[in-house]
Amino acid sequence: MPLTQIKQCPDCPWKKDRDLSEIPGYNRENHEDLKETIANPHQDLFEQLTSPKIAMGCHYSTDEKLLECVGWIYNQLRNNNLPLRLILMRSNQIKDLEIDGAQRATFAETLKD
Rank of each mutant, 00 (worst) to 15 (best):
L45I: 10
L3R: 07
L45C: 06
Y74C: 15
K53H: 02
N92L: 07
L82K: 11
S51R: 14
K95T: 12
K95M: 09
N81W: 02
E109S: 15
A108I: 13
R18H: 01
C69A: 05
G101C: 10
L77M: 10
L34Y: 01
L77A: 12
F107D: 09
P41M: 04
N27Q: 09
D96W: 01
E47Q: 03
K16F: 15
K7Q: 15
Q48V: 02
R78V: 13
F107R: 10
K65P: 03
P52M: 09
R90G: 07
C9S: 14
E36C: 10
I99K: 12
Q43A: 14
W14P: 15
A105N: 09
S21L: 11
D63L: 14
E29V: 15
Q8V: 01
I73S: 01
A102L: 07
L111S: 09
T110G: 04
N75V: 15
P24W: 09
D96P: 02
G25T: 11
N40K: 07
K53W: 00
Q103N: 06
A108K: 09
R90E: 11
D63W: 10
D44A: 11
R28Y: 13
R104F: 14
N30C: 05
E68A: 05
T110A: 02
I87E: 02
Q93G: 00
R28G: 03
N80G: 14
P24E: 03
T4A: 03
Y60A: 08
I38G: 08
G71E: 09
D11C: 03
L97T: 04
K95A: 12
D44Q: 06
H31G: 05
M1F: 00
E47A: 04
T110R: 02
M89R: 11
R28S: 12
G71V: 13
K112H: 04
R28L: 11
R104M: 11
L88R: 12
L86C: 14
A105G: 00
N75M: 13
C9V: 05
K7D: 09
R78N: 14
Q8P: 06
K95L: 14
H42C: 06
D113V: 00
Q8T: 08
K112M: 13
D113R: 05
R104A: 12
L97N: 05
H31S: 01
Q5P: 11
L66T: 13
D63P: 03
Q5N: 00
A105W: 05
S91T: 02
S51G: 06
Q8G: 02
R104H: 10
F107A: 11
Q43K: 12
L86Y: 04
L111H: 07
R78Y: 14
M89D: 01
K35A: 15
C69N: 01
L111I: 05
Y26M: 10
D63R: 02
Y26E: 12
T110I: 04
L45P: 07
L66S: 07
D19R: 08
